[in-house]
Design a protein around this nucleic acid. Structure first.
Lengths: 268, 268
DNA sequence: TTGCTCCTCACGTCACGTGAGGTGGC
DNA sequence: TTGCTCCTCACGTCACGTGAGGTGGC
C-alpha cells in the first residue's frame, strides 16, 4: 500500500511517517517504479506499535530503544514506563499547582475589580493592595505616585522572598498600613504624599528629616527589625544601589535617614 | 546592577534575560563603558512580573500581550488566564488518561511475565494473549509461527479499531480461542501448526482446502459475520493486498478460501 | 484536463541551553 | 596571574507542520 493508506491506518500524517524514516525509527520500504514508497502489512504492524508507545508519552528515542532491545524488550519497556510514570506524576502535580494558583488569581479578580496592575502576587499581598485601593478611593485627589511605586516594590519582594522565614515583613507591613485601621492607613498615605513632594527637591531640603522621622515612626517594630537586617547603603551588591537610584535624590535621602533611625531603634 | 545579579534576583539564567531582550520582551538597558548591560530596579520589577506570568504557564508572546495592553491589562490578563486554565485542564485530563493506561500496562506486566512482545494492547487482548501463552506452554514443541503472527495482526486491529462498535470481533475471537476451554484452544493451535506447514507449499497443495475448512469451522458465528463484512480480495484499498501478501501463497489461499466459506455461511 | 497523491528540500516552531572565542574587573 | 563575569554569534533541542516546486495516476 502507499504512504497515505499506511498513515491513515496509523491515524497520523504522511509527513510523520516520513519523519520516522528520516530518523531511522521505521525502515524505508521498497519503492515502485514511480518512486512511491510501497508498504507491507509488517510496516503497519510496526508503525501502530510505535504509535501505541508515543501515545503513552515515550519520546521517539525511547521508542527506538524499546523496539531495538529485542533481547528482553519487555524489561526495557517496563523500566521506561516506570520512569515515564514518575515523570508524568511530576507534571501532573505541577499542573495542579498552577491551576490552584490560577483559581486563586481568578478569585482575587472577582473579589476586587480585575487583577492588580502589579501582576500576580500572593493572596496576602493582594488583600493588602485591595485595602490600599479602598483607602485611596476614600481620600481626595489622585493617589500619590509613591503608593503605586511601593506596591511594585512589594510585588517584587513578594516574588523573590518565597521561603516562609523570609516572609516576616508581610505581617509588619500589614501593621504599618493599619491592619484595617483607617487612621493608620490615612497616615501612610500622608507619608506617600509628602514623599511625592520631595520629587524635585534638593537633597538638603529641610523637609527631608521630617519625612524620615515620620516614616520611622510609622514602621512597627517587626518591620523595623527586618529593615535593620537588610543591607545598608552601598552594600548588598548592586541591588541596594539600584534601589536608591530608583528614587529622586531627596526621596532617597529621606529613606536612607529613616532606615538609619530604624537601625538605631533596633539596637536599643 | 549587572545582568548576573538581575538574573539571580529573578531566579533565572543570564541567557534567559538576554533572550528576553532579543525578542523584545524586556527593554535593553543602558550600557557601561565596558559594554556591560546596566540595570535599574525597574528592570527587576518588570522581570519578576514576567516570571510570575511565565511560571503560571503563559507563553512569552502572551506575556508580551499582557504587558503591552496597558489599557486594561487586567481584563486581557483575565481572558488569557481563563483560556490557560481550560488548556491546563485538558492537559491534566490527558496526563491522567496516560497514567491510567500506564498503570494498566504495569499491572499486566505483573500478572503475566513482563509486557507482551507485541507492544501495548487493550486489557482484553492482553488477557487473551496470556491464555495463548499458557496454552502454548502446555503443548509440546515450540509455538507455531502463525500464532505469533496472528497476535501481531490482532494487536494492529486492536489499535486501529478503538470505537466500541468496531470491537465486536474481540468477543468472537475469545470464543474461537475457547473462552477458557482447553480443547478449543488446542484445536486453534492445531490450525496454526497446519498453516505453518503450508509455508513452502504450492498454491494447489491438496492440504489447502482442508485447512480452509478447519479455519471456517473453528470460527464462531459472531466472528463469521465480522469477517463477512470485511473487504474481500482486492478490495479495501491496498490494505487487503498487503494483508494477503504478508502470507506464503498457499497460506494466503487457505485464508482466502476460509473467508469465502464464512461469507457463504453468513448468507444462509 | 482536473483533482488527488506522491516526491524532495528546507525553513519554522518554543524557550531557551550550550559551546566558541574573546574581553573586562578584582 | 587567576578565577569570575560579561560580551556576541550561532548551532542544537523535539516532533513534526508548512510551504515550494515538481511529477505520477485515474
Amino acid at each position: 500500500m502507499r504512504i497515505g493508506e499506511l498513515a491513515a491506518i496509523a491515524g497520523i500524517s504522511t509527513r510523520t511517517v516520513r519523519h520516522y524514516h528520516r530518523i531511522g525509527l521505521l525502515a524505508e520500504p521498497s519503492r515502485r517504479a514511480n518512486g512511491y514508497r510501497w508498504y507491507g502489512l509488517r510496516d503497519a504492524v510496526v508503525l501502530s506499535r510505535i504509535r501505541a508507545l508515543t501515545e503513552l508519552g515515550l519520546s521517539l528515542e525511547e521508542v527506538g530503544d524499546v523496539l531495538g532491545a529485542d533481547t528482553d524488550a519487555g524489561k526495557e519497556l517496563h523500566e521506561v514506563l516506570a520512569e515515564l510514570d514518575a515523570d508524568l506524576a511530576r507534571q501532573e502535580a505541577d499542573i495542579r499547582r498552577r491551576r490552584a494558583r490560577l483559581a486563586e488569581l481568578l478569585r482575587q479578580a472577582e473579589e476586587g475589580d480585575g487583577l492588580p496592575a502589579e501582576g500576580p502576587v500572593s493572596p496576602e499581598l493582594a488583600a493588602l493592595f485591595g485595602e490600599m485601593a479602598r483607602a485611596s478611593a476614600r481620600l481626595p485627589g489622585p493617589e500619590p505616585a509613591m503608593a503605586a511605586k511601593e506596591r511594585e516594590l512589594l510585588a517584587l519582594l513578594d516574588r523573590t522572598a518565597q521561603a516562609p522565614e523570609e516572609r516576616g515583613w508581610l505581617a509588619g507591613l500589614r501593621q504599618s498600613l493599619g491592619d484595617g485601621d483607617p487612621a493608620a492607613m490615612r497616615r501612610a498615605y500622608e507619608i506617600y504624599a509628602r514623599l511625592d513632594e520631595l520629587a524635585g527637591a534638593p537633597v538638603d531640603d529641610p523637609r527631608v528629616g521630617a519625612v524620615a522621622g515620620a516614616i520611622a515612626e510609622a514602621v512597627p517594630d517587626e518591620l523595623a527589625r527586618a529593615a535593620a537586617e537588610s543591607p545598608g547603603e552601598g552594600e548588598g551588591g548592586g541591588f541596594a544601589g539600584a534601589f536608591f537610584a530608583d528614587f529622586a535624590p531627596a526621596q532617597a535621602e529621606a529613606i536612607r535617614q529613616a532606615m538609619r533611625l530604624l537601625r538605631e531603634r533596633a539596637v536599643r
